[in-house]
Amino acid sequence: MSQPAAIHLSGVSKRYGRTLAVDDVSLSVAHGEVFGFLGPNGAGKSTIVKMVLGLTYPTAGEIEVLGQPVGSLAARAEVGYLPETFRFHDWLTASELLHFHARLARVPANARTERVPDLLELVGLKDRANDRISTFSKGMMQRVGLAQALVGEPRLVILDEPTSALDPIGRRDVRDRIRELGERGVTVFLNSHLLSEVEQVCDRVAIIDHGSIVAEGKLDELLNAQEIELRAGEGAEAAARKILGKGGVRKVNGRLRVRVANDDETARLIRRMVEAGVPVYDVRQIGDSLEDLFVRVAERGDV
């Protein structure tokens, strides 16, 4: 039997009043994968992360984390999370914060006394271990937040914009930590609006915009892919999804837009659609649409 995915979302939507923040998102992150979730601010990335952690409830859809239904305590014990806000109780010292989170994560006492100083050293805060977090800069708070996310030796680490307050050196450190985690077989889910950050560490990415996943796959393949627009008969969308697998098919102004790797795939898609009884009236290539999308959804960043 194959191992269940580290994170699995199927048909997940979230509605806040009249706003649809997340629209029918399906996604699977395999064990040991470093997965990048890329999109502009306000695209719905943090909402999805909070739903995966059981902090926010989906309006529709199913979520599984480490093979358990979302929110189960057993799964949460193996998840580390750095929130986007990285705000912690600032009356604690760095060391106290880590000890508290280690206890919450059910780390045994003897392991705690060893791990806490090690982690503080790892994030470069060894000298500030006994200083209150209220005296920390934003960058230091983000680094202590990263240590906090790792304190339970999680199998899955979810980092929501982990470098937003860091300088270029700090960003490089975080990227190194993420790579180390990946090498140790820890699954990493990295939320970011920085293309360069995702580009450098992630095995696979999904791009989200306006609450929907617009592309998913290996980043270089995505960058080289083309998009075509089809005018076709009844059942075209379902047929295209079936032929290509689920990703890369969307409707724009009533027309179908499909991402394909190359011209051969375009030819194969149209042949199979016609064979399936879906008439195709018109096909045209959309110039550089994905590149436009990247420019729109992701910042290059200064890394």
Binding site: K50, L73, A77, V79, F88, H89, L104
Partner: peptide, 14 residues
């Protein structure tokens, strides 16, 4: 609202 409870509520805590 401040975000100080997020990391705690994500732990195995009801």
């Amino acid at each position: 609202d401040q975000g100080t409870l997020h990391a705690i509520a994500a732990r195995p805590v009801r």
